[in-house]
Amino acid sequence: MQKINPLLCTALILALASIGCDGGTTYEVVAATGIVLLDNKPIEGVSVTLVPQRGIKGRGGYATSASDGTFTLQSEPEVEGVVPGNYMVLFRKYAMPDGSSVPPGTSAADANLINQLPEIYSHPEKSPIYATIPPTEPGGLSFELSSRPKPGRR
């Protein structure tokens, strides 16, 4: 299990929040849903983050998986859907240091939360996972993670 560096986490959040900030311009989004599996089983509570690649307008997308592993991406708190295009996908599943569930309202920095997924899935310089959101509604994304990932090529 990997401990979360609060400074790195804060820097990543700020970087993602600033991507596409343009004084209120809105972009057309398409609905995007999917499922995340770990070792071929649905996994609950996984934070899914889409990081826009070159040429994508907007901020990307995010979601949290339900008990059956499904998720619905959104680009803003009140906007379901994401801008079509290519994205790097990052995954995190936080837990308390003892492995228990995170109580509602708990801050990652204050609680020393740990990421229960292998680091390769949450690190922007190591993630081997990319997704393309087509301009028409996609049929659904499927991400199959492994608790023992093989080093990927980028």
Results as ranks from 00 to 15, higher is better:
Leu12Trp: 02
Tyr87Gly: 07
Phe71Gly: 12
Ala15Glu: 14
Tyr130Val: 13
Lys3Arg: 09
Ser67Gln: 06
Glu44Trp: 04
Gly58Pro: 01
Pro52Ala: 11
Pro42Met: 06
Val29Ser: 07
Ala32Leu: 07
Leu16Ser: 10
Gly20Val: 12
Ser100Met: 08
Pro6Phe: 00
Ile56Thr: 10
Ile114Met: 11
Glu119Met: 08
Pro134Gly: 09
His123Thr: 15
Met96Gln: 10
Pro103Trp: 03
Asn86Gln: 10
Asp39Asn: 09
Thr132Gln: 12
Met1Lys: 07
Val79Pro: 02
Ala17Arg: 10
Leu73Gly: 03
Ile114Val: 15
Gly140Gln: 12
Gln2Phe: 05
Gly20Glu: 11
Tyr87Trp: 04
Ile133Cys: 01
Tyr62Ile: 08
Gly20Leu: 11
His123Lys: 13
Val79Ile: 15
Val46Ile: 06
Pro77Ile: 04
Pro104Val: 07
Ser127Thr: 15
Arg148Asp: 15
Gly60Leu: 03
Gly105Val: 05
Ser146Pro: 01
Pro77Glu: 00
Pro135Val: 11
Lys3Phe: 04
Gly140Leu: 08
Gly61Asp: 02
Phe71Met: 11
Leu90Ser: 07
Glu76Tyr: 11
Tyr121His: 05
Tyr130Lys: 15
Glu78Leu: 12
Gly20Pro: 10
Ile114Glu: 05
Cys9Ser: 09
Pro104Gln: 10
Asn86Met: 07
Asn5Lys: 10
Lys93Leu: 09
Gly69Leu: 07
Val30Met: 09
Asn5Gln: 11
Pro84Asn: 03
Val51Arg: 01
Leu38Ala: 11
Ile120Cys: 06
Gly99Ala: 06
Ala111Ser: 14
Cys21Asn: 07
Val36Asn: 00
Glu76Gln: 14
Arg154Ala: 07
Thr25Cys: 08
Pro118Val: 01
Thr64Leu: 12
Ser147Trp: 01
Ile19Gly: 13
Leu12Cys: 04
Gly58Tyr: 00
Met96Trp: 03
Gly58Met: 00
Thr132Glu: 13
Pro134Asp: 13
Pro149Ile: 06
Leu12Arg: 13
Arg54Trp: 10
Asn5Trp: 01
